[in-house]
Amino acid sequence: DTWRYAFEEALEEVQGKFAQKFKEEIEANSDHEVQLFPFGTLGESADTMEQAQAGILQFVDQSPGFTGALIPEAQVFFVPYLLPQDEETLQEFFRTSTAINEMFPELYAEQGLELLTMFPEGEVCMSTQEPVHSPADLNEVKFRVMTNPLLVESYQAFGATPTPLPWGEVYGALQTGIIQGQENPGFFLESTKMYEVTDVITCIGHNNFTTAVMANKQFYDGLPEEDQLLIQSATDAAFDYILDYQAGLQEESLQNIREAKPEMQVNILSEEERKPFMDTAVQVEEAFIDMTGERGKAILDQMKEDLEQASQATSG
């Protein structure tokens, strides 16, 4: 059969790499063909999600943050400092988390989707015009965020002036000075050329951009067991591949940026400098619970527990 798979990034970006590996695995081990549809070719993120729910697409990659309109609990990934800042712990977390591997699949199933996996895409860093070492440095900085209430809350708590702006206008707005900052994972700062129009990159470890791959549930449940196993093992292979690919990707992207623009300042904030930013997390957690109620709280608590276990497993 021909299976169709849409994702939110370009073919050579992280989601595209994952999809290519998935396609390669499926096609090597079966007669099925996988067609890949990168960002924008079948509509925006919300469109491809609906198409997957309608069964037109068999597979779709959508980041939980964008799923928030459908599954509010998925916005937990916007709560700052919830995910491990250290790479080894992060990978352990994604492999073992009960919240991710058991609780989220149920929420996605309610929307007719089989959650295949979630994986990290890289640490989100800020790119600004002036160096940022503390929340005070973000004062009066108009900072572009996606129109998500939790992101707005976060950047308000960080001291910035969150400013919504359509993605297509961000580059120009940084160039002319309507806004003075935006955030994205390292590879995206590189591929979208945000470094061309900003002077400083600051990593404060507040978030790692997470994405999720899912299948249409009716399609998945209707498959013979061998095909389900095929999809599972292709997903596992692509997951391992993407974690390997991830290792060092952030440094590589930042290095490429430094080469393309030698005067670029890249600041990785120290533990001590991060402290005031980390203190704001409580406020955003409360906003998250206000929005999502009991179910959201249960996910948040479980994720904290999973995090605890992951850091014990990697430190011990």
């Binding site: 370009a10 050579e12 960002f39 924008g40 297509g168 580059y171 120009g172 591929s191 979208t192 050329k193 061309e196 129009v197 393309a260």
Partner: peptide, 12 residues
């Protein structure tokens, strides 16, 4: 802008 993002070319 769209070409730059899709192809990874400098928009400037």
């Amino acid at each position: 802008i769209i070409y730059g993002v899709v192809s990874g070319t400098s928009i400037a």
